[in-house]
């Protein structure tokens, strides 16, 4: 594996604005020294590291010259045990190219910000150990979504679908007594447990061929959200019927062709395909009832 530091490609104007102040020039010099030091440090760290990992990262910026045509940049990052793909991206950004852009926040698989296309499949970067991947590691934005910049995609369509299923609890069984909860048996809570784990990362939607072809398809995450309420006995029968009408519409559960791609990529191990199948069976049952 090479230990070469990628060349900075963003260096543009060599010209500096004229600043008469002597002190200022000194300060600037110190900064340049510092920048040089920093790069040297990074290089030394690289050389000292027993291993480095080679990343090939998708780059695109509609505004910046040289980035308007999508391209891949190479980064060589020192490897440490336990390092994730997200750690590597952060290292590359903070040491080589501060314009490298990706969403991330929690670093613990709960905020759902950093689903990306890693070596050809949808993964949550903070939860993907580098050591387990083939190199070079290819990092791309989620497919089937519009790329905003580098690894950031537009999530609006995903949010719209999530919100299309009335994603909020609706019941007329709320107890009147003060400080009294609505009872739910353990079995029912267990039934909905997996479906409530969704972190809105969008990996499933991105992996789904049907969603790619039918923009109005609710998609696995939204159907799973509806499942979460449909199966919650606290909502009651009427509400269940109402929810079924949303689910069995033209772009609802029947679109799913049981390819399991969503289930395979879900970082929260939600059995999405099973949930959709179960709802299809419920749809059949509820239609029979009305015949």
């Amino acid at each position: 594996m090479s230990t070469q530091v990628p060349e900075t490609e963003t260096e543009t104007e060599a010209e500096t604005k004229s600043k008469p102040n002597q002190e200022r020039r000194m300060a600037e010099k110190a900064e340049r020294r510092e920048a040089a030091d920093r790069e040297r440090l990074a290089r030394e760290e690289l050389e000292a590291a027993d291993e480095t990992v080679h990343l090939k990262v998708f780059r695109y910026d509609p505004e910046v010259e040289g980035k308007q045509e999508p391209r891949f940049d190479d980064f060589h990052v020192p490897f440490e045990k336990g390092m994730t793909v997200l750690d590597a991206l952060i290292y590359a950004r903070d040491h080589y190219d501060s314009s490298l852009t990706f969403r991330h926040s929690c670093r613990q698989a709960i905020c759902g910000s950093d689903a990306m296309f890693v070596n050809g499949s949808q993964r949550l970067c903070c939860k993907t150990q580098l050591g387990e991947l083939e190199t070079p590691v290819r990092v791309e934005p989620l497919p089937h979504q519009e790329v905003v910049k580098d690894l950031v995609v537009d999530m609006q369509h995903f949010y719209d679908q999530m919100e299309a299923v009335e994603p909020y609890f609706q019941t007329d069984g709320t107890p009147n007594g003060e400080l009294e909860e609505q009872r739910q048996d353990r079995k029912n809570r267990e039934k909905i447990k997996m479906s409530t784990r969704c972190i809105w990362c969008g990996a499933c939607m991105s992996s789904c061929n049907i969603a790619a072809g039918d923009n109005e398809y609710l998609g696995p995450a939204a159907i799973n959200k509806a499942y979460r309420f449909y199966m919650d006995e606290r909502e009651g029968k009427d509400m269940q019927e109402h929810r079924m009408r949303v689910l069995e519409q033209e772009h609802g559960v029947w679109r799913c062709q049981t390819q399991f791609s969503c289930t395979e990529v879900c970082p929260k191990d939600i059995p999405l395909t099973e949930h959709i199948q179960e709802l299809k069976r419920e749809a059949v049952k509820s239609n029979l009832k009305f015949w």
């Binding site: 609890f169 400080l179 909860e181 739910q184 353990r186």
Partner: peptide, 23 residues
């Protein structure tokens, strides 16, 4: 706090439950 927690329950929050169905 009690009222607010019960309120969350009424909004559907999937709390862990006891055998009698309470939070």
């Amino acid at each position: 706090a009690p009222e607010e927690v019960i309120n969350l329950e009424h909004w559907g929050m999937p709390f862990s439950r006891e055998d009698d169905g309470r939070v």
